[in-house]
Amino acid sequence: MSENSPDSSGKIGYVVLGATKAEGGTRTVSFRLGGESDLPFIGMNTGQGSIPLVAFEICDDPEYWSPIVTSYTGDLSNDAREWAGVAEKQYGADIIRLYLTSTKRRGFDNFSSITTVMEEVLSGTGLPLVVEGSNEPAIDSDVFQRCGEAGEGERLLLGTAEAGRYRSVAAAALAYHHSVLAQSPIDINLAKQLNILLREIGVKADHIMIDPYTGTLGYGFEYSYSVMERIRSAALKGDTDLAMPMITSATDSLSVKEVREADPAALEDIAVEWEFYAALSSAIAGSSVVCVRHPKTVPLLKSAFRELWAGKMPGEA
């Protein structure tokens, strides 16, 4: 019962996403995440931490994307460059998260296309990027090398590292100075173990973000919510192997029965609310970056965070 703030001694470490021209990249903005020494949305008046950020998820092959999104975006989702630009300027996202879904195709070996997509998205938006590379362990090495290389200098967040499968992501991060998105399956000890493995291979703590894996509402969200609270509590108690900012994405939000089978007239609203409820709750549990796929969820989350946040805004000293 002592898991509360008064006796805490730890602090969430910092991770920087994106690099502006002055920092050696081409982004128009970069974010420094972390720095909290209290529970989420508490203690923000004391100047610590940063407002949670909203990442919008796009992909390079919309065949593997929710029809709820692609029917809303229409042709736009066929052009990752344009899509990234619209996500920044119209939807108002803080970060773009690019999934290289093209690598899901059976026998994918067109590795040079990865470089092309990366270049396009980097030119389409000035926002920091999270890049989800390969979906197939056999091609990890080729895919991540190209992701890393194409984004050199941009301080990407590269994903996804898992306990049995982290070497290529880590190698790309080390070779081209990016950060690693470390995902563990809703388990605090596995999250810690992965961070230790990454450290042993040379990735520094300030280049790791924890993805505790997020089951959406009604589909294991309670486990994810609690594991986030536990990671945050452990970090505040001084466990430095867990003191990294978290990033979460309830990616199943648009594919669960409640959303998929909703009345077509209400489907879009339900999709947005389902994402909004899971994402806001994730931030309340301690997530620094929440990722969503429906364009209309972005402004909702942004306003909610502004309403709740009494601390510094990004860029403020």
Binding site: L217, G218, F221, A266, D269, I270, E273, Y277
Partner: peptide, 13 residues
């Protein structure tokens, strides 16, 4: 209707 299911599910979770 959209918020209803989400809110009740979150509360259950």
């Amino acid at each position: 209707p959209a918020s209803s299911v989400a809110a009740l599910t979150l509360r259950q979770n």
